[in-house]
């Protein structure tokens, strides 16, 4: 029995847009803690791939538009944990990018209870039509070509999922930097239960 924690991580863009995974994240992601990794692509180099492999040998990966060296990666995949089908895709093929209706269509096509996507470099988690949608954001805080408000920058983040039966507990890790430049990791928890009347949409975006 391996660890039951599933890590969702993506949009690292090393070395083109970021130097490395933040040290505080690397420290948390020690080998032996994670059972499976769902990697949403745009790694984009071999060292990062090897690092993720060392975190958990069960590395499931899909292709981002910048993963040019790994041409054979699929665009989406589905894994099953407990009674939940979890689909994941980088999201650059979903148009308009990050649009909730388009994501819902994709989730229905993949027949999944949970859809994990990336590409926007912005953490999001919400329920729609009884399905959970999760975007773990960018693990490195790499800049994105999308629209950003004045002075706003991507916050490094990743997600952990713990599935027991039909319940998924999502842990959201974000690297905060205060005015003095000191970094700290915040952890938030979101619980998703399959086949219960959907509560009002909770947009956890910051």
């Amino acid at each position: 029995m391996t660890s039951r924690l599933v890590l969702a991580i993506g949009d690292l863009h090393i070395p083109d847009r970021a130097a490395a995974i933040p040290a505080k994240f690397r420290k948390l992601l020690a080998p032996g803690k994670i059972g499976q990794i769902l990697c949403l692509g745009n790694l984009t180099d071999k060292e990062t791939y090897d690092f993720l492999r060392s975190v958990a040998p069960d590395l499931q990966i899909v292709k981002g538009e910048f993963d040019v060296e790994a041409a054979n990666l699929p665009l989406s995949k589905v894994v099953t944990h407990g009674s939940l089908r979890i689909g994941f895709t980088h999201g650059h093929t979903i148009i308009p990018q990050g649009d909730s209706d388009s994501l819902l269509i994709a989730a229905r096509q993949m027949d999944v209870d949970v859809l994990v996507w990336g590409g926007t470099h912005r953490f999001e988690a919400y329920e729609l039509e009884g399905k959970l949608f999760v975007n773990p954001g960018t693990a490195t805080g790499a800049i994105s070509s999308g629209w950003w408000a004045e002075g706003e920058e991507p916050i490094p983040s990743f997600c952990l999922m713990d599935v027991q039966g039909s319940v998924l507990v999502l842990y959201v890790y974000q690297l905060r930097t205060d005015e003095k430049g000191a970094e700290s990791v915040s952890v938030e928890k979101v619980t998703f239960r399959k086949e219960l009347p959907a509560p009002p949409i909770t947009d956890k975006a910051i």
Partner: peptide, 12 residues
């Protein structure tokens, strides 16, 4: 899953 929901126990 016990404890303060605002300060969840960090799995890592």
């Amino acid at each position: 899953y016990d404890g303060d929901p605002d300060h969840p126990i960090d799995p890592l």
